Simulated assay, not measured.
Amino acid sequence: MSAILPPSERLWWKHPLDRLEAIWIAIAFIWCMVMFFMMVFWHVYGKQNLSTETYKVDVGQFTERTQAFVDKYTVRTETEQEVPVVAPPEGEDIYLIGRLWNWWPILELEKGKTYKLHMTSMDYNHGFSLQPNNINIQVVPGYEHVIKITPNESGMYSIVCNEFCGIGHHEMVGRLYVK
C-alpha cells in the first residue's frame, strides 16, 4: 500500500485501529484537553486576559459623551494638532476615540486609582495596544468596549494601533500618562 494512492477499500474507518495509532490519538486528545482547561485557568486565575464589556453604540452619541468628558476635564493641550490632555478624577468613566489616524484625547490618570475606559472607533477597525504593557483590544466601529483599568506604574505609555487601518496607520499613536 502507498500513501500516495487512495486506499483499496473505501470504508477505511471500519478497519481495526493499530495500537500505536490509538496511543497517538489518545495523547493528542489529552493534550487538547490540557490546553483547553489551561486557557480557562489562565483567564480566571492568571489574570492574563482582559474581561471587557461590549455594547452596540451610536457613534454620534458616543462622540457627544466624549466631547462632554473632554470639555469637563481638560487640563492642557499637546502636539501640533492641539490634542486635549484630560485628567479625570478616580472612578470617573473615561472615553477614548480611535479614528483616522489618531487616538483622541490624551488621558492623564493617577497611579493606583480605578477607571472605566470606554472606547470605540469612528471609521475602521483599530487595534488598541498599550505599550509596553502588551494590552491588546480590537476596537470595532459601532461597538463600545469597556474595561476597568487601575494603573500601577507611573510614566508615559504609548497607545498604538496594531490593526492596519489605511495609509496613515503607521502614524496612529496616542499617549496615556500615569502620575
Rank of each mutant, 00 (worst) to 15 (best):
I25M: 10
W13A: 07
Y95D: 11
N136R: 13
H118S: 07
P89N: 03
E108V: 04
I25E: 07
F69H: 08
R65W: 05
P16L: 15
N134G: 12
L20D: 14
I97P: 07
K116C: 01
N125M: 09
K111W: 04
M1E: 15
V146H: 05
I167S: 10
V40C: 11
Q67E: 14
T66P: 06
T66H: 02
V86T: 02
V146Q: 03
K47S: 12
N125S: 05
L96H: 12
E82C: 08
W31Q: 13
I135S: 06
G155W: 09
L176R: 00
P84W: 14
P6C: 10
F41T: 00
C165L: 04
V85R: 15
P105E: 11
Y45N: 02
K56L: 15
W101A: 07
T66M: 06
L130A: 00
T54E: 05
L130D: 00
K111T: 09
Y55M: 09
V173W: 05
N102Y: 12
M122R: 06
E53F: 04
N162F: 00
V75T: 13
M33D: 06
N136H: 13
V85S: 08
P132T: 01
V57F: 11
P7W: 11
G98A: 03
I106P: 09
F69E: 13
T77C: 11
T77Q: 15
D93V: 01
I4G: 13
P89K: 11
M33L: 15
Y55I: 09
E21G: 09
A3C: 06
Q131E: 06
M39S: 05
L20Y: 10
N125C: 09
I149C: 05
M33G: 11
T74V: 11
H169W: 12
P6I: 14
Y73T: 01
E80C: 02
E9I: 15
L130S: 00
S8V: 09
I159V: 07
G91Y: 01
F36D: 10
I149L: 13
I30G: 03
